[in-house]
Design a protein around this nucleic acid. Structure first.
Lengths: 214, 214
DNA sequence: ACCTGAACACCGTTCAAGT
DNA sequence: ACCTGAACACCGTTCAAGT
């Protein structure tokens, strides 16, 4: 029995832990703080989940399950592959802290399996086979995960870029003031993601109809 | 004076700290362990570098400086942009732990500035101006950093992919056994990087001569 | 089976005290 | 100016003891 008269359970521990991580990141998840939330002794947690490492493993497993369902949309295989990339990015961005945990524990690949299958399906539909199909799938996969990691980093450290404009007033910048201006503004990440995704998919699947990507 | 009769200095502290991080990662850098290496009291370190946070800041600043020099090679602007991407990846992979620290502290963008300038130069040479040039530069930048982050993660967790082949013996795999086989093998990351870099650069700079990328 | 409190070995950091 | 040792507030984890 805890403070509130209710019994502790593994699910209760996991729920409280997930709340802490979602709100304040994994560093905020200390066993003592968690016990505080649960109204029990620190050591009671150990009976239910083993230890902190095992607790994080369970949270990661949950996240991997949640990332499961991916559906492709569009007329052509290339367009459908692109839609998978876009949805993937959306889902990854919705759970930043937990995704970081998955990544830290080296389970990104495992988490990406459903998306991998969806992409493989579209590669197959586009006529790609064997190693060429695998390369196409992995190219998109690396691209999406990598992009999300980079943009997350930018968001976490908004004040860290010390005057990008200051560092651009050299020869090139004088020749092209529009360039310096473009670098002074934060990048339009949505646009950047669409453009690069389109480039990667187009080069491996064939052209994506609908917009005029070079 | 320390154990060895020599005096402590800020540089000595930084060197010892860098050694620890390079060999065993930032988690291994504890103030007590560092004091052990240096043969001084834990608190002596504080006099020279402030605290652990400041110490890491200095290591990060060092790394940013080291990443400075980038030179482009090749005949066309696109080929030169591609060479920058390749060299960038090489340099990033040579300092995984320190790069991770830079990334953690949100200084990746700062670190990438020299490469950014080199890429901007090539974009300019290819006739790109203003926002279009900035987008081309950033696309390559995001691509390289993202790719390195993803492949690092794969390397750190080699045993974590639980039987990718097992998860591929479904309809698609039956239709294309070569695909299942290709996924059972680890990806050829060098090849994958070259292919995707070529795709991104080609779509924004124009075709890269020398090899037949689609 | 489930939970507690005391204890241990670690952390980073502060601070008065020494030279 | 440079360094020490004691002390404080945190960690995760173990374990004998309770019910």
């Amino acid at each position: 029995m805890n403070d509130r008269g209710s019994r502790l359970s593994k699910d209760a521990v996991l729920d409280a832990a997930a709340d802490l991580v979602r709100a304040q990141g994994p560093a905020a998840l200390t066993m003592r703080r968690l016990a505080g939330e649960l109204g029990c002794a620190v050591t009671a947690i150990y009976w239910h989940v083993g230890n902190r490492e095992a607790l994080l493993d369970e949270l990661v497993a949950r996240t991997v399950r949640e990332m499961g369902r991916i559906r492709a949309e569009g007329a052509t295989p290339a367009a459908r592959a692109e839609s998978v990339a876009l949805e993937l990015r959306r889902k990854l961005r919705a759970r930043p802290h937990l995704i970081a945990l998955v990544h830290e524990r080296g389970l990104t690949e495992r988490m990406m399996l459903p998306a991998q299958r969806a992409l493989a399906h579209e590669a197959h539909a586009a006529g790609l086979r064997g190693a060429a199909a695998a390369e196409a799938v992995r190219a998109v996969q690396f691209h999406v995960v990598g992009f999300v990691l980079v943009e997350r980093n930018r968001e976490r450290a908004p004040a860290q870029h010390p005057g990008e404009p200051d560092l651009w007033d050299d020869a090139t910048a004088e020749q092209d003031p529009g360039l310096a201006q473009a670098f002074a503004d934060p990048p339009d990440v949505d646009r950047l993601f669409r453009a690069t995704t389109r480039a990667v998919v187009a080069s491996l699947w064939g052209a994506v109809p609908g917009e005029g990507g070079a």
